[in-house]
Design a protein around this nucleic acid. Sequence first.
DNA 1: CGGAACTTGTTTAGTCTTGAACCATCCACG
DNA 2: CGTGGATGGTTCAAGACTAAACAAGTTCCG
Lengths: 135, 135
Amino acid sequence: MPKIDAAKLWSLNHHLLMSTIASVAADLGELGLEVKELFVLAEVDEHPFPAELAAALLMPKPTMTVYVKRLEASGLLRREIDAADLRRHRLQLTATGRRTMQQGMGLLADAFAARLGRLSAAEQNQLRALIEKLS
Amino acid sequence: MPKIDAAKLWSLNHHLLMSTIASVAADLGELGLEVKELFVLAEVDEHPFPAELAAALLMPKPTMTVYVKRLEASGLLRREIDAADLRRHRLQLTATGRRTMQQGMGLLADAFAARLGRLSAAEQNQLRALIEKLS
DNA sequence: CGGAACTTGTTTAGTCTTGAACCATCCACG
DNA sequence: CGTGGATGGTTCAAGACTAAACAAGTTCCG
């Protein structure tokens, strides 16, 4: 693959992802969620502390502070100080938080699946295997 | 592919692209370019008008106004009113603009190629074919 | 022609995001 | 124990972003 093609491939892929998300943003808004808030919710189980979350989502810590506060205020997230380390705030989805997150991920899944529909089932599996290999 | 998997695949892919770009941001900065400025430069040839560019890059028009102004001020972009339609501003890369854009795309290509390195040449071609099919 | 409807790019005003500096807590080591 | 160097989270101020409203220009049609 010639050198510059990797950048083109990157851009193509980027456009694909961004247009997917743009198509979901409105419906997500009706759920009361911003796009990035959904990402935060989706990773809480796996990364239950703000600093960890920020690292996983490649966003600065102050940004995470803001999101966590907002999500807590909307009752989607609960936050309690970790007994084992008084600096850390352990995060946890509330019941409605989890439900909302699942709905949001469902919307994203639908939108992306719609584009994936251009591929055969075999190709979809190929793609998944390749992306997983890259991650 | 079960429904929620599409969202996971999306997220995985997203993380891949974002971490690629994060790894390039610093070097790009030394070039005097912000990430999104690079995207703008890269699309000018294909979409020579701000409104068109904004649509192609999925960003609002006022944002594009800002970038175009900045890029013009740094001498990477030239702008002239289109004789055929006095509302439109036809954009054009300057010589240094084109050079800088190519360097930037080179950095992005290197960074992405580094991750693609985990795949065999055949797999890389597969991936490219799949992404192109989706776009 | 004439003007309603649309498109282009800009301004404005307010929100979102984030680098820098900060406090509290933890941990490793003498 | 008791520091010095890390780490978790927050605050604050400045910069980035964008929705809404706009002026200028074009197009469509009667």
